[in-house]
Simulated scan of single mutants.
Amino acid sequence: MSHTRKPGGNMGDKVKYKRVLLKISGEALMGQREYGLDPDMVERIAQEVRTVHGLGVEICLVIGGGNIFRGLSGAAAGMERATADYMGMLATVINSLAMQNALERLDVPTRVQSAIPMSTVAEPYIRRRAVRHLEKGRIIIFGAGTGNPFFTTDTAAALRASEMNCDLLLKGTKVDGVYDADPVKNPRAKRYDRLTYHRVLTEDLGVMDHSAISLARENRIPIAVFSINQPGAFAEVIAGRGQFTIVSDSKYRE
């Protein structure tokens, strides 16, 4: 699955992947806030994306909406689940537009495609058009999840990574990989360097929801879990360095 490609930036090593999808939670955009967007955090993540884009890597993004509205929380509070999920999808579009703005301020060409049509602010999701944008060196941000309720943005990320034929699906989290316990609560928690899809599913390790893991496994897309809060970590993973956990099948080789 992996590719070797000479970088176009200043990073000394060759990058391992030609086309990737980065999944970021909405909470990551909050920074230290309790709600909404932290402009400094959005800008910092945009800088990370620009660095990797400068290496010649084709990048897709999927951003969650939990910093604004979470469908499951709305459903738990008595709202109809489908309605709550649609509200959560709209929140992802808000985050997508914020990230597009931050990237374009850094002179990185970016397009937002929404699974829910809203032509005033975003292109509709059209697979062939998205592929063409990537081939032209534009970053694609996929908004509104899958466009359907009852599916998470994790599943949307795995779906779009499969449709775009990505070499790697990255999940940016608060910690630098997958652990056998919460590393915040347990300082002796062990980080896994490598896991199989099967183990993640059977042990319910919480990397992504089961639908997302199953989609990635079916299409043989490895998943890298890393810390989005660590400066430079995105580029490190693309170069095959740094601390992260790879989820793949047992036949995967770097």
Rank of each mutant, 00 (worst) to 15 (best):
A158Y: 08
A158E: 07
A158D: 07
L159M: 10
L159Q: 00
L159Y: 05
R160W: 01
R160G: 02
A161Q: 08
S162I: 03
S162N: 04
S162M: 11
S162Y: 08
E163Y: 01
M164W: 01
D167H: 03
D167K: 00
L168K: 05
L168S: 07
L169D: 05
L170W: 00
L170R: 00
K171L: 03
K174E: 07
V175S: 06
V175M: 01
D176H: 03
D176F: 00
V178D: 02
Y179T: 01
Y179E: 07
D180Y: 04
A181R: 09
A181H: 10
D182Q: 07
D182F: 00
V184C: 09
K185A: 12
N186H: 11
P187I: 14
P187E: 11
R188S: 14
A189Y: 06
A189K: 10
K190T: 15
K190A: 15
R191D: 11
Y192K: 08
Y192D: 11
Y192G: 09
Y192W: 13
D193E: 15
D193Q: 15
L195W: 13
L195P: 12
L195G: 11
T196Y: 12
Y197W: 14
Y197L: 14
H198E: 15
H198C: 12
R199P: 10
R199E: 15
R199F: 10
R199M: 13
V200W: 10
V200C: 15
V200Q: 07
L201D: 14
T202K: 14
T202F: 09
E203W: 10
D204Q: 15
D204E: 15
D204T: 11
L205H: 08
V207L: 06
S211H: 12
S211F: 12
S211I: 13
A212H: 06
A212V: 06
I213T: 06
I213M: 05
S214G: 10
S214E: 09
A216P: 01
A216W: 10
E218Q: 15
R220N: 12
I223T: 12
I223K: 09
V225L: 07
F226N: 04
F226L: 09
S227N: 04
S227K: 00
S227W: 02
I228K: 01
N229M: 08
N229I: 09
